[in-house]
């Protein structure tokens, strides 16, 4: 099995350069988060991977095949969940899934069996024989996920899969994505909800202004100072202790406690040792933002400075 390989890919629409230079690899068995601000080219990149859009430059391999020259081979191995929710309005959930499986060349019997299996998997049993137009946004999202899985693909491209899902469905999605990866599939997930990706993805592709961040940029961004949130049962003691240790200048105090920018994990370890040593009743000591968000924010900040 081969995963996803993207090298030097660019795509412009007229004079809008949606993707300028995307390069990354996702190995089988891994879940990669595709992270970037609005309009950074995430959906365009996914459309190129999904064999719907021809790149202007660069090469793409999905499951070992080039979507430009071998779209049929790619499509047989790739499942795509679009960000735009569409469903055949007058077909029932079951019929929609059976039809999708038939469009992938499955026999009627195999398609029926697969549809039943997926309806259970995405928890749409009660709605299986209702027309898809009565589904809510989150339910449509689950149907869309089921459709992407209908031909048991080895590469999955999920564009904003969590949007519109309730917390239970989100947890289900996380577990499902992790399980699919553990079966040796390759998953690329784009999302705005970084906390969501944090728990699903084991690697990240940062896309900003149509350019993927290089590994050394990411490493550098990960090393920059980040905010830590400190909570204490006694805010006054916390403030005094921070002043005494020389953090009073940079710390921001609010009604939840304090936010302290720290350069490294070592600094964080020193600070908490100090606070505890000074007798401050610390109830919580954690990074204010997740790893992905930290890198993402830092990269976007640098992007703006460069521009």
């Amino acid at each position: 099995m081969a995963g996803i390989e993207v090298s030097g890919v660019a795509r412009a629409f007229g004079d809008v350069h949606a993707v300028r230079d995307a390069t990354f690899t996702v190995e089988p068995g891994h879940v990669a988060g595709l992270i970037g601000p609005n309009g950074s080219g995430k959906t365009t990149l996914l459309l190129m991977l999904a064999s719907l859009l021809r790149p202007d430059a660069g090469t793409i391999r999905v499951a070992g095949f080039d979507p430009v020259t071998d779209p049929a081979e790619v499509r047989a191995r790739m499942g795509w969940m679009p960000d735009l929710l569409g469903s055949w309005a007058s077909l029932t959930v079951r019929e929609a899934l059976v039809t999708s499986a038939r469009l992938y060349g499955r026999s009627t019997d195999a398609a029926r069996a697969r549809a039943d299996e997926l309806i259970g998997l995405v928890d749409l049993d009660e709605l299986a024989d209702r027309p898809t137009r009565v589904l809510s946004r989150g339910q449509k999202q689950r149907l869309s996920l089921a459709r992407a899985l209908v031909h048991d693909p080895e590469v999955l491209l999920l564009d904003e899969p969590a949007s519109g899902l309730d917390p239970v469905a989100r947890a289900g999605l996380r577990a499902l994505v992790r399980r699919l990866a553990s079966e040796g599939r390759t998953v690329l997930v784009s999302s705005h909800v970084l906390a969501e990706l944090e728990e699903m993805a084991d690697q990240a592709v940062y896309l900003s202004g149509g350019v993927t961040a290089a590994a050394d940029e990411i490493a550098r961004a990960a090393r920059t100072a980040r905010d830590w949130r400190v909570r204490s049962l006694d805010p006054e003691r916390l403030r005094t202790a921070l002043d005494a240790a020389g953090w009073g200048e940079v710390a921001r105090i609010d009604n939840l406690g304090a936010i302290v920018p720290l350069a490294t994990e070592e600094d964080a370890a020193q600070l908490i040792a100090h606070l505890v040593g000074a007798g401050v009743p610390v109830s919580s000591f954690a990074p204010a933002v997740g790893d992905l968000e930290h890198v993402f924010l830092d990269l976007s900040r640098n992007g703006e400075e460069d521009a």
């Binding site: 999904a50 064999s51 719907l52 679009p82 569409g86």
Partner: peptide, 13 residues
């Protein structure tokens, strides 16, 4: 417009 064309085009038809 309904978003169902692309999902048909990524299949084998």
């Amino acid at each position: 417009d309904a978003g169902t064309l692309a999902t048909t085009q990524v299949t084998l038809v």
